[in-house]
Simulated scan of single mutants.
Amino acid sequence: MKLNFIKVNPTENMTIFITTPVPRNLYKEVAKSVMNYASLHAEQVGFVEACNGGGIKLHMMGGEFCANATIGLAATLVNLGHPIVERGHGSCYMLDLEVSGVVTSITCCVEKLAESNRYISTIQMPLHNEVLPYNMEISGKTYSGTLVKFPGIMHLIVDTREIANENKEEFFHKVKDSFKDENYEALGIMYYDKVENYMEPLVYVKATDSLHWERGCGSGTAAVGAAMSELNKESVNLDISQPGGSIRVTTVVEDNKIKEILLSSKVQIVAEGTVYL
């Protein structure tokens, strides 16, 4: 099989877009192949689909929602000069994308940087369904966290310092076992150090049974912003540091409710070409 691809770098959350049409029943197989170290090597794969009326849909490998991939595809389409891109105010290019895991389109704003292959993308996140405290007992000890459920993905935010003596991957699998009755496409644990404002994201996609230490997680960043806003009943504007860089989350709170969540990140178009499977 010969497929065209574009590889992008949103906060080092390396993402491959397959632009050749592929039957959806092959998405899982194709994604596992191209993510492999011996192939294109990335953390996730999205498939670019054409919609009626000339629109674009991003369908992730497991049908999940991925904020960083959305951020990356928006920059990619601006880079390609795609017809759905419109000139916005000032230096902003505007477009709407359909994305797996959510029912409403995602509004994106992209700004070009000095280098021809680098951008800053901002997306309007779909609002979360729930933010709730979550307690779990592991090895006779009770741990607490905050569970944030978005359409297509959910994240558990835990205090890194509280689990300092735990193996983080083993901790993840124990948490995942506790969610066996939950309906989700993707599950992340955001190991967050509030004092240092530093986060390590570990994300699992159910359909591909893949678990990755992500260098940057957009929806996880949005989860931290939503949790803070829900707790304090106020807007936040925060750059959260992660292994691959920082992602900005901005929330707008009115009448004690979150009305809007925005995510901004730098994106680099890394490569494009043909992959053989």
Rank of each mutant, 00 (worst) to 15 (best):
Met1Ser: 13
Met1Cys: 09
Phe5Pro: 00
Lys7Gly: 11
Val8Arg: 00
Asn9Ser: 15
Asn9Gln: 05
Asn13Met: 00
Ile16Gly: 07
Ile16Arg: 05
Phe17Leu: 12
Phe17Asn: 04
Ile18His: 01
Ile18Trp: 00
Thr20Asp: 10
Thr20Asn: 08
Pro21Val: 06
Val22Tyr: 08
Tyr27Trp: 09
Lys28Asp: 13
Val30Phe: 01
Lys32Glu: 14
Ser33Ala: 15
Val34Asp: 04
Tyr37Asn: 12
His41Trp: 13
His41Tyr: 15
His41Pro: 06
Glu43His: 00
Val45Asp: 00
Ala50His: 08
Ala50Asn: 15
Ala50Ser: 15
Cys51Gly: 10
Asn52Gln: 14
Asn52Val: 13
Ile56His: 02
Lys57Glu: 15
Lys57Asp: 07
Leu58Ile: 05
Met61Gly: 12
Met61Glu: 15
Gly62Lys: 03
Gly63Ile: 03
Gly63Trp: 01
Glu64Gly: 10
Phe65Ile: 00
Phe65Gly: 05
Cys66Ala: 15
Asn68Val: 08
Leu73Thr: 04
Leu73Gly: 00
Ala75Asn: 06
Ala75Leu: 01
Thr76His: 05
Leu77Ser: 03
Leu80Gln: 13
His82Pro: 07
His82Gly: 05
Pro83Ala: 07
Pro83Lys: 00
Ile84Asp: 06
Val85Trp: 02
His89Ile: 14
Cys92His: 13
Met94Asp: 14
Asp96Leu: 12
Leu97Gly: 03
Leu97Cys: 09
Val99Thr: 12
Gly101Asn: 01
Val102Asp: 06
Ser105Lys: 13
Cys109Ala: 15
Val110Gly: 07
Ala114Arg: 12
Tyr119Asn: 11
Ser121Glu: 01
Thr122Cys: 09
Leu127Phe: 13
Leu127Pro: 03
Glu130Gln: 12
Val131His: 02
Val131Cys: 13
Met136Pro: 05
Glu137Phe: 11
Glu137Cys: 12
Ile138Met: 12
Ser139Gly: 14
Tyr143Leu: 07
Tyr143Asn: 04
Gly145Lys: 03
Gly145Arg: 05
Leu147Glu: 10
Phe150Leu: 08
Pro151Arg: 06
Gly152Trp: 04
Met154Ile: 11
Leu156Glu: 02
Thr160Gln: 13
Thr160Glu: 13
Phe171His: 09
Phe172Thr: 00
His173Asn: 15
Lys176Gly: 09
Asp177Gly: 10
Asp177Pro: 02
Ala186Ile: 07
Ile189Met: 03
Tyr191Cys: 01
Tyr192Glu: 11
Lys194His: 13
Val195Cys: 11
Glu200His: 11
Val203Ser: 00
Tyr204Trp: 03
Lys206Trp: 04
Lys206Gln: 14
Ser210Gln: 12
Ser210Glu: 03
Leu211Cys: 09
Trp213Gly: 03
Glu214His: 04
Glu214Phe: 01
Glu214Gly: 07
Arg215Ser: 12
Gly216Asn: 01
Cys217Gly: 04
Ser219Pro: 10
Ala222Gly: 11
Ala222Ser: 11
Val224Phe: 11
Met228Thr: 04
Met228Trp: 11
Lys233Cys: 10
Gly244Glu: 00
Gly244His: 04
Gly245Thr: 10
Gly245Pro: 06
Glu254Ser: 12
Asp255Lys: 11
Lys257Arg: 05
Ser264His: 06
Lys266Leu: 01
Val267Tyr: 05
Val267Ala: 08
Gln268Ala: 08
Ile269Asn: 01
Val270Gln: 08
Gly273Trp: 03
Tyr276Thr: 12
Leu277Ile: 09
